[in-house]
């Protein structure tokens, strides 16, 4: 594994290795000294062409806990806003000696281009590209599910996961569908017909337009954010109607099995896809997802740049 570009690239073995490593690294957050010397002298660049708070600080915390040097590069107020392209930015980073580049870009496929164009020798980690993928989010979701549904060991064979909402614009949904399938889970995507992407019938999932039908057998329900900033057409009649048909409220939550958990990748639109009561309830693991995100990203960084890399001399 040289880069992490798509959740679909991960084999069952790769995925379990990341989750098992994260399980060990989760303990670091509870220690008096929350730092490991492992990536001392390595440089991790956060290259963010799109706004992000949680993903960027999660990667930053992960890299810092492993003692890497972190350089944050955001497109706003940088040379990218002066018209510099991805290539020249990447060449600059290579000249600065980046060992890993965490990239978020508004265009699908940008991390893939960065990884395969040989502009930079560092490992490329996709932190979200357009409406394509967000593999570390899928890993932290799977990690959270595994902790609650399988005591933090093995895979998710036989578990029923329901993902609800704006699948069309969601890179989280795509990455989750691919990874959860690899881990043996059964995924159901629930959305209005207008918010399901073209070609979803080729995904390893079941689809439904009816949220209520899939609640009783769900082991985990993941609510997706309605991405208003990406909506340039009318995908549903009104926010109120969306909320009534596809929002998770207390009545719907009560119909879930006793052990089922409620997830959300954040940021939430309270009152839209999830009601405030549900978001703050005991079934909700939304805050825990954030904590787990740091451990999972530490695991990914360690596994990609913790060993010998090209730049090392014996």
């Amino acid at each position: 594994m040289k880069h992490l570009l798509s959740a679909g690239d991960l084999t069952h073995e790769d995925a379990l290795r990341i989750l098992d490593t994260a399980e060990e690294l989760l303990g670091v957050a509870k220690r008096p000294i929350k730092k490991l010397p492992t990536l001392r002298g390595r440089t991790v660049v956060n290259l963010f062409f799109e706004d992000s708070t949680r993903t960027r600080i999660s990667f930053e915390a992960a890299a810092k806990r492993l003692s890497a040097d972190v350089i944050n590069f955001s497109a706003k107020g940088s040379s990218a806003s002066k018209g510099e392209g991805l290539k020249d930015t990447a060449l600059t980073l290579q000249a600065m000696g980046a060992d890993a580049v965490v990239v978020r870009h508004h265009h699908s496929g940008a991390p893939h281009r960065l990884a395969h164009a040989e502009w930079t020798k560092g490992a490329v980690i996709n932190a979200g590209d357009g409406t394509h993928e967000h593999p570390t989010q899928a890993l932290l979701d799977a990690f959270t599910m595994r902790r609650h549904l399988n005591d933090g060991v093995g895979d998710l064979a036989g578990k029923n996961i329901t993902i609800v909402g704006d699948v069309l614009h969601s890179r989280v949904a795509r990455s989750n569908a691919l990874l959860l399938h690899t881990l043996g889970a059964h995924v159901t995507l629930v959305a209005p017909p207008t918010l399901l992407p073209v070609g979803v019938e080729h995904w390893p999932v079941e689809t439904s337009y009816d949220l209520d039908a899939s609640l009783e057998k769900a082991d985990a329900v993941m609510m997706l954010r309605v991405q208003r900033e990406r909506m340039n057409a009318s995908f549903f009649p009104s926010a109120r109607e969306y909320s009534r048909r596809y929002g998770l409220d207390t009545a719907r939550m009560n119909r879930l099995p006793e052990h089922a958990i409620v997830m959300h990748p954040g940021p939430m639109n309270r009152g839209m896809e999830i009601s405030a009561d549900v978001a703050d309830s005991g079934r909700s693991v939304i805050v825990e997802q954030v904590t787990n995100g740091v451990a999972v990203r530490m695991a990914v960084l360690y596994l990609l740049v913790g060993g010998s890399t090209e730049g090392d001399t014996e």
Partner: peptide, 21 residues
């Protein structure tokens, strides 16, 4: 006590799996 993350030879080989602490 797993010591993998503290080894001084991590960069001399492929990445090692962690053991349980």
């Amino acid at each position: 006590l797993d010591i993998t993350m503290y080894r001084d030879d991590l960069r001399r080989g492929p990445v090692r799996s962690l053991e349980h602490t």
